[in-house]
Design a protein around this nucleic acid. Structure first.
Length: 157
DNA sequence: GCCAACGTTGGC
DNA sequence: GCCAACGTTGGC
């Protein structure tokens, strides 16, 4: 089966692509939205491509790409009372929240700003660009993936 | 810092 | 099960 494509958001003050470069792989934990969780749990497969988006910065931009390196498994932060994402309602035998593991692939030579994305007619339907979109994990069409990689000057994919 | 958009919560 | 209140996201 062909692989699928996704976009994940992160605030660079919190976690950014340079940290992913150093970490090489990281558990994408702390997502506390059911729709986003369901995309990770039901949609993401090992090898899927991931656009790595930096939000709440100037300008917001796609910083590079990653790939799914481990399928959905319980997010450990939900069980940790000291973690910001602790969820007291979540029990070990019935976890509410899942994460995947992401592996660094490439940092874009030319980060693609939100303005650039909006200026591309072929990206008009991109989920990220729909008004009021607040999902932190969302699917990306193959054609959108190809174009964003081209805009970013990506060598891999 | 503002605020629109949206998800979640909880009273009824 | 409705919906108002509240909290969060994220661009600007």
């Amino acid at each position: 089966m062909a692989r699928n494509y996704w976009l994940v958001k992160t605030e660079p003050d919190c976690y950014n692509i340079d940290q992913l470069v150093r970490d090489k792989r990281t558990g994408w934990g702390g997502v506390r939205n059911y729709q986003a969780r369901n995309f990770m749990r039901d949609g993401m497969k090992v090898g899927d491509g991931v656009l790595f988006y930096h939000s709440s910065c100037e300008p917001p931009h796609v910083a590079g790409i990653a790939r799914v390196s481990k399928p959905a498994h319980p997010d450990p932060t939900q069980f940790d009372p000291k973690d910001d994402h602790y969820d007291p309602k979540s029990q070990k035998d019935d976890p509410q929240w899942m994460q995947v593991e992401l592996e660094f692939v490439e940092k874009f030579a030319d980060p693609v700003s939100l303005d650039e994305l909006r200026s591309e007619p072929a990206l008009a339907k991109m989920r990220l660009l729909q008004r009021g979109n607040r999902l932190s994990v969302m699917p990306v069409e193959a054609s959108e993936w190809e174009l964003v990689l081209k805009l970013g000057g990506a060598k891999k994919g």
